[in-house]
Write a protein that binds this DNA or RNA. Structure first.
Lengths: 335, 335
DNA sequence: ATCATGTGTGTTATCGATAACTCAAAATTA
DNA sequence: TAATTTTGAGTTATCGATAACACACATGAT
């Protein structure tokens, strides 16, 4: 491996001079600068960022932790974060927790051991608090994404879950639905709580009562407990519509319904949070509250970089991004 | 930041002893081992992987370079690669080239400067040769993914593009289509060439002639040149079906068709390579040759790790994974 | 002519960890 | 009991880069 010492020797200067040429610091005569540059090219020198990080005490690496890399919401978000980080001269280390606290913890350990300069952190849930405190203990700046964590003061970028949920449920109510089930994420996740609140408000504002037997909780990542669906279907007064708290749950619900011979929207209408990107573009189907995923990433990354490079004593900021109601064909009026 | 020296001092031993405890090397008495462990926990010690990498000359970081992070094929592939890498004790650095050679080059420079132990490399096209040679020059092992690069000898994991294309086109022919257009990727990409070969073979095997005015090339990432579609539509003898060389192109084509008031499959049948994951599961639409994306990543990663840890003189391996024809509703018989 | 200032470069110590070597004390063997 | 081996450490050099300081020489001011 070529080091600055190899360059230095061949150019007949000291290693420090080479370092100065690389970093454009100190005073160097034009003649030696040129000579050093030439040798660097000849030997195809690439700086060793490990060595540099060790002495500079910063890595120029940021980390993006998301909870599901196969969810288009998060990959679009990742694009936003990536574009912003690269433009600002940082490298981006992706991490994917799969909604799994243990995996999240492992990734946090990696980040600590890699000494990343900052983390854009989409937590798996409230219990992520511990991982965030771990980052804070080691003085690693972070911005929380998508889900709010009680007990932590930090910059945070959120979607308007309550409002989005309210709009979705009011759309269903407007179509004549009166019995609307909700397949929610875990109550350990702030968005799940707020989406439930929105669901509830939509009912109350329209003179309907919320029936808790129609509300089911599960992991945001997949609809694994089909017995919950059976309970809804065989309810004495079954729902005519289902509000899935995110896109992955909608996928699971619709598949499970189909397995039971029920069609959407003929037998049940379905709405959900988050869009499906390209796929919905070609064959629009799911009525959804689409969040501005790219902006989530771009804005969060911008806040993070400001936090790292700017005044550390910056006040904490809380951004709430609106979602857009996209009415498509997974909903229809009650017959 | 807590270092082994802090631990050493507090435990009343030398730094070397701490290092030995951390790595389970050398001889340490049970008593001191326990004492050191205890201090490590008290101080919340996290090893500095930069320092370690510097002396060990390896980072335990692998890199996965994909060409489009918003394409479900690649994210599913990423999951396979991630699972395999983590299980083997490596960290994974994602990189996303956006089908852009310049971005790919930037990422390769990052990998070199990060001194990753190996790269799982989905190239943007034949010109990626230069970036691969750059890796090779610096002795970084890699496995090529999805697209073959003429001029480079390496482990490679590919899909069966020719066969998949043949099956798709024969499906169309079976439905009575005789004028089948192809929206292909760039001829600079091996899969595009092979998919064209498959398209051609399907024609020849069925007594049809290939008409080159029906074949259009563009970037795999998006269907940006809509004039090409206009030329097809206004062709004196227009196609009744379109074969899009990947899922992203299918998205673009179908959207552009809709803008022009044409419906799929009523006015034109559409088939493509690669699936859309979850989205297609809820609302099956695109007839596609689905590739085993997860396996691409898992298998590629396995080859890479074998290459890194095993016998360096291993012979190069070439794996070809079959695709599965999924007949859905974007195709119908000619009226 | 003398002193201060500026310019270009080199020397040494350091970041945090580990490899290679050393060595005293304890345990074993002859 | 003396010689040898084993055990459980410590010392020093090193990975590749940069910060802080040092310093020779040229230039300009007085």
């Amino acid at each position: 491996m070529i080091t600055i010492y190899d360059i230095a020797e061949k150019a007949g200067v000291s290693a420090m001079t080479v370092s100065r040429v690389i970093n454009n610091t100190g005073r160097i005569s034009e003649a030696t600068r040129k000579r050093v540059r030439k040798v660097m090219e000849e030997l195809h020198y690439i700086p060793n960022s490990m060595a540099r990080s060790l002495v500079l005490q910063k890595t120029k690496i940021l980390s993006l932790l998301i909870t599901d890399i196969t969810n288009p919401f998060y990959t679009t978000l990742a694009r936003g974060a990536e574009d912003t980080a690269l433009r600002a001269g940082y490298r981006l280390l992706f991490a994917n927790s799969d909604e799994d606290y243990a995996k999240e913890k492992d990734y946090v350990d990696m980040m600590l051991s890699t000494r990343v300069d900052g983390v854009l952190f989409a937590p798996t849930g409230d219990h992520s608090l511990e991982n965030l405190l771990q980052l804070r203990k080691h003085n690693i700046p972070f911005v929380v994404l998508d889900r709010e964590i009680p007990g932590i003061d930090a910059d945070v970028v959120l979607g308007d879950s309550k409002e989005g949920a309210r709009k979705l449920v009011e759309h269903l109510i407007g179509l004549g639905h009166r019995r609307i089930a909700m397949i929610n994420g875990s109550p350990d996740v702030s968005t799940a709580r707020l989406r439930y609140t929105g669901y509830r408000e939509a009912h109350l504002l329209n003179g309907l009562t919320v029936e808790d037997s129609l509300v089911v909780h599960m992991n945001y990542r997949d609809f694994h407990d089909e017995s919950a669906l059976d309970a809804l279907i065989h309810h004495e007064d079954p729902p005519t519509a289902i509000f899935a708290a995110n896109n992955m749950l909608a996928v699971g619900v619709i598949q499970a319904l189909r397995k039971r011979g029920m069609q959407v929207p003929r037998d049940v209408s379905v709405v959900c949070f988050d869009d499906f990107g390209h796929a919905e573009a070609i064959n629009p189907f799911l009525t959804a509250a689409a969040q501005p995923a790219y902006q989530f990433g771009a804005l969060g990354m911008q806040l993070l970089i400001e936090r790292i490079e700017g005044d550390a004593a910056l006040e904490n900021r809380k951004m709430i991004l609106p979602s857009e109601l996209l009415i498509r064909s997974s909903t229809q009026a009650v017959q």
